[in-house]
Design a protein around this nucleic acid. Structure first.
Length: 127
DNA sequence: CATATGACGACAA
DNA sequence: ATTGTCGCCATAT
């Protein structure tokens, strides 16, 4: 009986599978220091996913329960909070940032001041 | 298989 | 600063 390739091996996830990509994304976000922020695109780049900003946004909806990923430290490239102003999510994000000392003006953060500039040893989490 | 949809981003007016 | 267009890509329908 010829054997077909085993595609059910979860211990070695295909590095390009969405599960593996989400895992890398979450790890990158977890590495953002308190009081710093990163853009969706920046997180994607650091996770090894070119042009993956939208995947970063999507991944934040699939964070496993019980895992605390500091989603609120992720902003749009121009520093604005991504969610609509009228939403509870927007208010929670704003509050979280303020509590870490990140100045938020009209839903906007200065990326020049607060953008995370990771050192090489903070990025050992690829692969 | 065809379209639509986003917690996005770069760029041109 | 604002607005619109287009590219992107996993999911949803």
């Amino acid at each position: 009986m010829p054997r077909l390739p085993d595609t059910s091996d979860v211990s070695r996830p295909d590095p390009s599978s969405t599960a593996a990509r989400y895992e890398r994304i979450w790890r990158v976000i977890e590495a953002i220091p308190v009081g710093s922020v990163a853009s969706y695109g920046q997180v994607a780049e650091l996770a090894g996913i070119a042009r993956g900003a939208r995947q970063v946004a999507r991944s934040l909806r699939h964070v496993p329960d019980g895992r605390s990923v500091p989603w609120f430290r992720v902003l749009r490239a121009d520093g604005r909070i991504a969610m609509a102003k009228s939403t509870a999510g927007y208010r929670r994000q704003r509050t979280h940032l303020l509590s870490e000392g990140v100045v938020v003006n009209d839903g906007r953060v200065s990326m020049r001041v607060y953008r995370w500039a990771p050192r090489s040893d903070e990025i050992l989490l690829r692969f």
